[in-house]
Computed example of a mutant assay.
Amino acid sequence: MTFKTLGAICALSLGLAGAAMAEYPERPINMVIPYGAGGATDISARTIAEPLGAAVGKPLVMANVTGAGGATGSVAVQNANADGYTMLFARVGSHSVNPAMKATLPYTLEDFRFVTVYEINPFACVVSANSDLASMEDVLARAQAGELSFSSSGVGSGPHLAAAMVLDAFGLEDAANAATHIPQQGGGAAATAVLNGTADFLCTNSSALAGFVANGQMRALMVTTAEPVAGFDAPTAASLGHPELEQMVGWTGIAGPAGLPDDVAAKWAEWMEAAAADADFVEKMEARGSIIRVMAPEEANDFIQTQYETFRKLVDDLGMRIEG
């Protein structure tokens, strides 16, 4: 075989490999939602599924893989092939709060490559509509009496940290332990616990609560934004004298395993720009208090790292690091 022939074969092989890569995706893509039905992550994922599927051009197989405050589904993606066919709807709890709080978490941020963050949410603090807690002052008084309980989507989750942070800001001593924490399996279950009276209080993403507030089942006592949130009819943290609570925000993004190829990440960036521009998606998410903002892969990774560092400091300040 001549060098000329060998060169032609190599060139053909490289061309075929490039063509094969350019065909991604060739089959359906598995999309893991690491929290249960009805929570903020599930709502966001299923709302964007239709426009995102249209942009991708292949079916998206949506699956709730729940447990351990988002860790179970995250590990499933961490251990998947880095080929773009198993992706994760990551959330502030699974990839900012969990890494900040849990010393034995089976993954780190370096185990994932984020292709986007597309949604930012304020937090809202709510009670059941028939609760006798009418203000944050009432919440604080009950907590100081040792009689307040709050729900969350799991130990070490965003709502767990949020409630402790809010109570600490309002002056409750030993806020991480003074109120009774009632962890649930997911955001939907955390809301249900407040509705059925199992827990008094919940601080979580506005997107998971908007429907309950709109239909009169829940009453918002505060939102963690500089400006009021449409539909919540509640004072802002800043208006109550606690602008530091504005750093408590949620987000939703999409990630693959570490090692996800550059060209695959670039395709996801294009798809997300198209999907998040869908008017119906934007209308539905904004009605839930969400801010739609699509970040490119590099910006998303930088944003999440900053969020992690912010929450890690809060965890250290509140003494909430979980070592076991």
Rank of each mutant, 00 (worst) to 15 (best):
F123G: 11
K267F: 09
H242F: 11
S290K: 03
A230S: 15
G146N: 08
R321E: 13
R288W: 10
G211Y: 08
S131I: 05
A255Q: 05
T104V: 07
P28D: 12
N215I: 07
T66Q: 07
P99F: 06
G38M: 03
N177G: 13
L60Y: 03
L260M: 05
E147P: 06
G18P: 00
G158Y: 07
C10Q: 12
P25F: 07
E309P: 04
F170A: 00
Y308C: 11
C125K: 04
D83M: 10
A37G: 04
S128Q: 03
A19W: 14
M218N: 08
W268Y: 10
P159C: 11
G15F: 13
M248T: 00
V117H: 09
M272H: 11
I292R: 08
R219V: 13
G289S: 06
V194E: 03
L140C: 11
M31R: 03
G211D: 12
S149R: 10
E50G: 02
S153W: 00
P25T: 04
Y24I: 01
A8E: 15
E299M: 07
F232T: 00
E270S: 13
K284V: 07
R219S: 14
T72C: 09
I292H: 07
L172E: 11
Q305T: 12
A163K: 01
K102S: 11
P99M: 11
F150H: 10
L6D: 05
T306D: 15
S151G: 12
A220R: 01
A134D: 14
A214R: 13
A255D: 13
A274E: 13
M285A: 05
M218L: 15
V282F: 12
T47I: 03
I304W: 04
L109C: 14
D111P: 11
G156S: 07
G15C: 15
F123D: 10
S94E: 02
V282H: 09
T192R: 10
Q184Y: 06
D233S: 12
C125N: 08
T72H: 08
L195K: 03
A208E: 04
T41N: 12
N79G: 04
A162P: 02
S149W: 13
W251S: 06
F281L: 04
K313M: 14
V294T: 13
T66N: 09
M285W: 02
Q305Y: 07
V77D: 03
D111G: 10
G216S: 05
V127G: 03
G38S: 01
K58S: 13
G154Q: 02
I48W: 00
L167E: 06
Q185M: 15
K102Y: 10
A71V: 12
V97G: 00
L172S: 04
D302M: 11
I304N: 03
V127W: 09
G188I: 01
L202N: 06
L133N: 09
T104P: 02
E309A: 15
E299G: 08
P106C: 13
A189K: 02
A237D: 14
S135H: 14
A63Q: 12
V139M: 09
V65E: 10
S151I: 01
A17S: 13
A190W: 00
